[in-house]
């Protein structure tokens, strides 16, 4: 019963914090609350026997997404007031029915929640899924951790395309900025000494943790994406501390870093076709190939996430001077 109490309190708190994220008028605080929600979700993942997801949520879902959002919030904060004033003077039917949009939206959202609840209650209560199947085949996959065996062997094709999504996002960000490397991104002007000092300590620590997560992923919770995210966080910190990080990379090196993992899957897939099917690797060589692929995932995830951070806050190369003149000074 006490066990259950923990879950009830946790679930309740997550719901309340999510609601606060929405209500919080100040953007920056709202983002901080969002990160807090992510960390609480990590606890929920632990409660639900999903330690891999807890790690990924903390590192990517709360961590990097949070950093991205906070960075976006910083520049937006200055505009908040002006925008709010504009919103008050909205045109069209909204002016005549203030709050109508909210009421309709709330009704729609509640309807969705109700329907979803009904669907969840209708789900069969007894286990039905692929737990057994994964347990039976795990030996043939080359690793001893079920999630890794699914991610890098049974459904490696999905993982490859997932790496592709990450890569495409980075390519998209570069295309939006009309650039091929991040050298034109603005370096941090007001670097704090303490940040520089912190970066020097954290970088080796991050490498160590990432290495451990990567290595342990074959037989216990951990894994390549989580390790990559930790490294990316360190790279982001370096950038905030005034080091060049990924924005110091040349076009070719940045491209290579972004592409490495996707290309590695492609190569492994190609080689697999000589033995049988695309992405076939079983038996003896399975573990080695999985370790190699995971290593490329670590590198590419780290470079890509750090590049996404640099790109989301950067000025484009060609007209950055004109833009900078227009951009309000950063507060906070």
């Amino acid at each position: 019963m006490l066990e259950h109490g923990v879950d009830i309190v946790l679930a309740g708190s997550i719901a309340v914090v999510a609601w606060r994220v929405l209500l919080e008028p100040q953007l920056f605080r709202s983002m901080v609350l969002f990160i807090a929600m992510g960390l609480m979700l990590s606890l929920a993942w632990v409660r639900l026997a999903a330690p891999d997801i807890a790690l990924a949520e903390a590192a990517i879902g709360a961590g990097l997404t949070g950093i991205l959002l906070i960075r976006a919030a910083q520049t937006e904060a200055a505009q908040e007031a002006a925008a709010a004033a504009r919103e008050a003077a909205t045109s069209g039917w909204r002016r005549w029915f203030p709050g109508a949009g909210r009421i309709v939206s709330a009704a729609a959202a509640l309807a969705f929640a109700a329907v979803l609840l009904v669907a969840v209650i209708d789900l069969p209560g007894e286990p039905i899924g692929l737990t057994e199947a994964a347990a039976t085949e795990m030996e043939a996959s080359g690793v001893e951790h079920p999630v890794t065996s699914v991610l890098l062997n049974f459904r490696a094709y999905d993982t490859w395309l997932e790496v592709g999504v990450l890569l495409l996002a980075a390519m998209g960000v570069l295309a939006i900025h009309r650039t091929y490397n991040l050298r034109s991104t603005r370096s941090e002007e007001h670097t704090m000494l303490v940040l520089t000092w912190l970066a020097r300590i954290i970088l080796p620590l991050a490498v160590l943790i990432a290495g451990y997560l990567y290595w342990s992923g074959t037989h216990q919770p951990g894994g390549a994406f989580q390790a990559g995210a930790i490294l990316a966080a360190a790279l982001v910190l370096m950038q905030l501390a005034g080091f060049r990080g990924v924005s110091g990379l040349s076009t070719l090196w940045l491209g290579a870093g972004l592409m490495l993992s996707f290309a590695a899957f492609l190569a492994v897939g190609f080689i697999g076709t000589f033995e049988g099917e695309f992405l076939r690797y079983r038996h003896a060589t399975g573990e080695l190939i999985i370790l190699a692929l995971e290593l490329t995932i670590v590198v590419s995830t780290a470079v890509t996430l750090a590049a996404l951070f640099a790109g989301a806050g950067s000025q484009s190369g060609d007209d950055s001077d004109a833009v900078r003149a227009r951009t309000p000074p950063e507060s906070l």
């Binding site: 997801i53 879902g61 997404t65 999630v147 459904r155 999905d158 990450l166």
Partner: peptide, 17 residues
């Protein structure tokens, strides 16, 4: 069940992208 776990890991990466 490891399959939904793998799906969520993919989903998290897609969401951040």
């Amino acid at each position: 069940d490891p399959v939904p776990h793998a799906m969520v890991l993919t989903g998290i990466v897609v969401a951040v992208s």
